[in-house]
C-alpha cells in the first residue's frame, strides 16, 4: 500500500481545541489534503476522552474510533492538553498504540516542548498555525509509524 492509498485508510482524525475557528481551519486543511477520513471535532479534553472511550455523548458510536491521528491543543479550559494526556495514559497500551497524538500550541515557552519530549504518547510537537506542509508531514509520519508497527 502506498501513502496515497493509506490516506483513505486513516480511520479517524480527532481535533481537540477550544477555539472554534482553529478547528474549522484544521477541518479545511484536511479537505485540502484530500483526507477522506472521519473528522471528529471536540472543544475540550473531557469530550476527547468521551469520544475515545465511546462514553457520554458518544455512547452509540460503534465504528469510531479504532485508530487515528489526534491534534491536541495545550491550553483549554477545564481539562487542558496535559490533563487529557494524564487520563489517556490510563488506557491500555494496545489502544494507545493505535493513536498518533500531535501536540499543537501557540506557546513559545521552551518548557512546554521539554515537557512534551518527556511524554511517550506525544508523537509530534508543532507550533501553530498548522500549515498544509505540516499536515502532510503528520500524515507521512503516521504512515511510517503504522508501517513500523506491522
Amino acid at each position: 500500500m502506498n501513502q496515497n492509498d493509506f490516506l483513505k485508510e486513516i480511520n479517524c482524525f480527532l481535533l481537540v481545541d477550544d477555539d472554534k475557528i482553529t478547528n474549522l481551519l484544521h477541518t479545511k486543511l484536511l479537505k485540502i489534503c484530500h483526507v477522506q477520513s472521519h473528522v471528529e471535532v471536540v472543544t475540550s479534553g473531557v469530550q476527547a476522552i468521551d469520544f475515545l472511550t465511546c462514553k457520554g455523548a458518544y455512547t452509540s458510536n460503534k465504528n469510531f474510533p479504532q485508530s487515528g491521528i489526534i491534534l491536541l491543543d495545550i491550553n483549554m479550559p477545564v481539562m487542558n492538553g496535559w490533563d487529557f494526556l494524564d487520563e489517556y495514559k490510563k488506557f491500555d497500551k494496545i489502544t494507545r498504540s493505535k493513536f498518533f497524538i500531535v501536540m499543537l500550541t501557540s506557546s513559545i515557552d521552551p518548557s512546554d516542548k521539554n515537557k512534551a519530549d518527556e511524554i511517550e504518547d506525544i508523537k509530534m510537537f508543532l507550533n501553530k498555525p498548522l500549515t498544509k506542509e505540516n499536515l502532510l508531514s503528520i500524515i507521512h509520519n503516521y504512515y511510517l509509524y503504522v508501517s513500523g508497527m506491522n
Partner: peptide
C-alpha cells in the same frame, strides 16, 4: 511566555486563515 502565548494564540489563527487564502486553497 504566558503573555506572548495569549497574543500568539489569536495571531496563529489569523496566520492560518491568511495562509490558506495565500496559497489559493481557500
Amino acid at each position: 511566555f504566558i503573555q506572548s502565548h495569549e497574543i500568539r494564540h489569536p495571531l496563529t489563527t489569523i496566520m492560518g486563515l491568511v495562509n490558506l487564502v495565500r496559497y489559493n486553497y481557500q
